Simulated assay, not measured.
Amino acid sequence: MTQTPQPVTDPLTLAALDTERHVARSGWDQPVRLFALVPTAELLALEPQLADGLAAHDAVAGALSAVEQEELPEATGLEELLAQIAWPDQVTGCALAVERIVVPPDAERDLPDEDEAALRAVAEHPSRQDVRLLVAVTRGGEARCLLRQRAHDSDDRVALGEDIAPGLVHALRATFGPE
């Protein structure tokens, strides 16, 4: 017996999937991209002309729309960048897209201690995989993580879970201040 996949209906997952597809359309080798997630109904009340470009699922109760943050603060790394982010009350959640190189766990154990040598070893490893993570969280604590592998980019499939990138989930939740 074959199971028919159930349609995704929760607002955070829909927003994460839409945002990841938006990022994917720009290809690979992108910088970090950050998005505010705002209630679609409130966005349309302020910007009614945006209604023409919305998908059917944007009418779902509680739907969220992603608004890209164009000018990010200067930072030497992702942790420093996120430490500078704070959201106004109108922002229900946020999403972050970041590309990474991953290697199998056994390859990680053999990496050099020196940072530059380790980065070079990862980049040159024959089993390396380029991946894009999109992590979305809400002010209320929900999280969705999507992972797209560059090697499987053409099939448009992404892995979906809540704990694929726990460090990024935690760092994004911290942008909403103390719990």
Rank of each mutant, 00 (worst) to 15 (best):
residue 163 D to Q: 09
residue 136 A to P: 02
residue 15 A to V: 01
residue 104 P to L: 04
residue 172 L to Y: 01
residue 71 E to D: 13
residue 82 L to G: 03
residue 109 R to N: 12
residue 113 D to I: 10
residue 83 A to F: 12
residue 104 P to A: 05
residue 26 S to W: 15
residue 120 R to F: 14
residue 135 V to K: 01
residue 60 V to H: 14
residue 42 E to R: 14
residue 28 W to N: 02
residue 169 V to R: 02
residue 60 V to L: 03
residue 83 A to G: 12
residue 85 I to F: 05
residue 145 C to R: 01
residue 48 P to G: 04
residue 83 A to M: 07
residue 151 A to P: 04
residue 148 R to A: 11
residue 166 P to K: 06
residue 68 E to L: 06
residue 104 P to N: 03
residue 110 D to M: 14
residue 32 V to W: 04
residue 29 D to I: 08
residue 2 T to Y: 13
residue 56 A to F: 04
residue 152 H to F: 14
residue 142 E to V: 07
residue 14 L to K: 01
residue 162 E to C: 08
residue 57 H to Q: 06
residue 66 A to V: 05
residue 44 L to I: 08
residue 112 P to W: 04
residue 49 Q to P: 09
residue 149 Q to W: 15
residue 163 D to E: 15
residue 135 V to G: 05
residue 59 A to D: 08
residue 91 V to K: 06
residue 43 L to W: 11
residue 113 D to E: 13
residue 11 P to D: 01
residue 88 P to Y: 06
residue 75 A to V: 00
residue 156 D to I: 10
residue 46 L to H: 15
residue 27 G to Q: 02
residue 142 E to G: 14
residue 119 L to E: 14
residue 101 I to M: 13
residue 9 T to E: 10
residue 110 D to G: 14
residue 100 R to M: 09
residue 100 R to Q: 15
residue 107 A to H: 08
residue 129 Q to M: 12
residue 105 P to T: 07
residue 92 T to I: 11
residue 78 L to K: 07
residue 128 R to E: 07
residue 8 V to E: 05
residue 5 P to I: 07
residue 79 E to M: 11
residue 160 L to W: 02
residue 138 T to H: 00
residue 9 T to A: 13
residue 23 V to Q: 06
residue 138 T to E: 00
residue 5 P to C: 12
residue 128 R to I: 09
residue 170 H to V: 12
residue 12 L to D: 01
residue 99 E to V: 06
residue 176 F to S: 02
residue 86 A to V: 12
residue 64 L to C: 06
residue 105 P to V: 10
residue 129 Q to S: 13
residue 115 D to R: 15
residue 100 R to P: 04
residue 18 D to E: 14
residue 29 D to T: 07
residue 78 L to P: 02
residue 156 D to L: 14
residue 44 L to F: 09
residue 102 V to L: 15
residue 135 V to M: 07
residue 50 L to D: 08
